[in-house]
């Protein structure tokens, strides 16, 4: 049985929204970062669904690039997290608050 494209898109929207919620709610920097990855995954699903719809492979290639970028971002982000942890000994965003007026 065929599944409407819209369902895939809505699934992606659900994941994206959960990602947003997690980004805002989670207090651990690594988990926040993970929620960004979740959002990127949701976008990827959207791309793949549209790619299927349009019979255009460029959507899939876009996803491929998103993955590469995500990998690069992960490397840099985790490096930043490590360097932050070295200085602050915490990963709690509520304690990362030196920069305030």
């Amino acid at each position: 049985m065929a599944v409407p494209i819209a369902f895939y898109l809505i699934l992606a929207a659900i994941l994206f929204s959960i990602g947003i919620a997690a980004f805002l709610i989670k207090r651990n920097i690594i988990t926040i970062f993970m929620s960004i990855e979740l959002m990127l995954n949701a976008v990827n699903l959207t791309f793949v669904a549209f790619s299927h719809m349009w019979h255009q492979v460029s959507g899939q290639i876009f996803v491929f690039f998103v993955m590469v970028v995500a990998a690069a971002e992960a490397a840099v982000g985790l490096a930043i997290i490590i360097s932050l942890f070295r200085v602050r000994q915490t990963l709690d965003v509520d304690q990362i608050n030196l920069l305030k007026d």
């Binding site: 949701a42 549209f50 602050r88 920069l99």
Partner: peptide, 26 residues
């Protein structure tokens, strides 16, 4: 480090939106 992590997290967050926009364009 704090500056970098804040920039990084929010920047990536924004990237996700940007990408979603492109996806919808597509």
């Amino acid at each position: 480090s704090e500056s970098a992590i804040k920039y990084f997290l929010l920047g990536s967050f924004a990237t996700a939106f940007f990408l979603y926009g492109i996806a919808l364009c597509f």
